[in-house]
């Protein structure tokens, strides 16, 4: 039950993009087409879960030596190395999967959502299982926001918008409306 609460909480109520504002760059940059949104989303879910699995033991190590203030440095380094490694392994071992995800991987290193999840796990002092569920839910929430928004965006392109608002301003205002609709979930878990 507790896991379901975390899952629902991260996917809908505290959606990482629409109410926590993490990963906006990727959200605005990649959400142009459904296909690239799906690819990016899958890559983010994968990296988030794996990064959580990697950083969990590292945080325990930091805790043991009482240097938890180094967590930002340690986590970002682990994520950067991990992403690089996954890219190389996928390229060698599973070329089809690399073709589908690999191209999105370099973009993820500086996606603040990934570092955000690992730091949230630590701040909320989740255990390993809770952390993984949190990472999974956050990743799904990211993908959901990206997919929904890519649909909205294709409509924007077809509509008549005043000259000054074309492009990024219109996209941001559309994002505002999508975010407003996600506020409806806010009473879902007390």
């Amino acid at each position: 039950m507790e896991y379901i609460l975390i899952l629902v909480g991260t996917v809908l109520v505290n959606n990482i993009v629409l109410s926590q504002f993490m990963g906006i760059c990727a959200f605005l940059g990649v959400s142009k087409q459904m296909k690239s949104s799906l690819g990016m989303g899958a890559a983010v879910i994968f990296v988030m879960v794996c990064a959580t699995l990697c950083t969990y033991p590292i945080y325990m190590l930091l805790e043991k030596f009482e240097i938890t203030y180094l967590k930002t440095v340690a986590f970002i380094l682990v994520i950067a190395l991990f992403v690089q490694m996954v890219e190389m392994i996928l390229k060698k071992v599973m070329p089809p999967l690399y073709k589908a995800l690999g191209i999105y991987l370099p973009l993820i290193t500086t996606n603040c959502a990934v570092l955000g999840v690992t730091i949230t796990n630590v701040d909320e002092s989740y255990n390993l299982a809770q952390s993984v569920v949190n990472a999974l839910g956050t990743g799904i929430g990211f993908t959901l926001a990206l997919l929904l928004f890519s649909g909205v965006r294709s409509k924007i392109n077809d509509s008549k918008i005043p000259e000054t608002f074309r492009g990024v301003p219109a996209t941001l205002i559309a994002a505002s409306i999508v975010s407003l609709s996600f506020m409806g979930f806010s009473g879902l878990i007390g």
Binding site: E163, G167, P169, A170, S176, S179, M183
Partner: peptide, 25 residues
């Protein structure tokens, strides 16, 4: 959160208008 997106969109539009250039696509 929704207001954040909205205000930023409006400010960028305003900057574009003042700079009198096409908004970045």
């Amino acid at each position: 959160p929704a207001g954040g997106f909205f205000v930023l969109g409006c400010i960028i539009a305003l900057v574009n208008k003042l700079a009198n250039k096409k908004p970045p696509a």
